[in-house]
């Protein structure tokens, strides 16, 4: 599945300072639809190069990291259960850096 994953608010520093990643994510075997929970595992494994604790806490993003799927707050779409489709744009923004 083709997705665009974007990092902002300083999170890009965890992935070689690259903000926009056009990626191809395989749907896990035996699963019909890719959900955000799967994508987080994938992102942590494939895109995050350092200090993963700045991005993940437990099985979800660290509190203070905003997530938008197609420019919509993931709190409106079911957070970890948000289903993903071809060409979706997922944005992660840290709110924790400087003022």
């Amino acid at each position: 599945m083709q997705l665009t994953v974007e990092f902002g608010g300083g999170l890009e520093l965890l992935c070689d300072s690259v903000k926009i990643h056009n990626v191809n994510v395989e749907t896990p075997k035996g699963v019909q639809q890719l959900i955000m929970k799967d994508l987080l595992v994938w992102v942590q494994k494939n895109l995050i190069k350092e200090r993963p604790e700045m991005f993940i806490k437990g099985d979800t993003v660290r509190p203070g990291v905003l997530v938008l799927v197609n420019d919509c707050d993931w709190e409106l779409s079911g957070q970890l259960d948000t289903t993903l489709e071809e060409k979706d744009v997922v944005v992660f923004i840290s709110t924790l850096h400087g003022g």
């Binding site: 938008l68 197609n70 919509c72 779409s77 079911g78």
Partner: peptide, 12 residues
Amino acid sequence: AESHAKVQKAGG
């Protein structure tokens, strides 16, 4: 979220 039978797609 589990109480929602159908999780809505972003912007849905």
